[in-house]
Amino acid sequence: MAVTTEQIADAMYEMVKEVQGKKKLKAMDLTHAMIDRYGAEGCDKKMCKAAIRDLIDNDRCVYTYFGGSYIELPHEEGAASGG
């Protein structure tokens, strides 16, 4: 099934939103999930990379670091307020 980068970005966003606060996803988790969902013919790593860039550049998601780098929804940093 052929999909556009925007569709992949939307699907990734939904995935991140669904697990926000419960599980942290890495870029490669999102990439693997999209290739599983749409098949290698319709969705490749390059498209996933572009979709992640789209999510970050449009402030829909942010990179976070907790021992490794993750992609999450923008939220207030707990540590920033002394939490």
Binding site: V62, Y65, E77, A79
Partner: peptide
Amino acid sequence: GGIVGVHGYGGGVIGRYNDLPE
């Protein structure tokens, strides 16, 4: 760690907060 960074980048900034901000 945490979510600090500059727009578009996922690297280059290492967040540090102290736990006694008052």
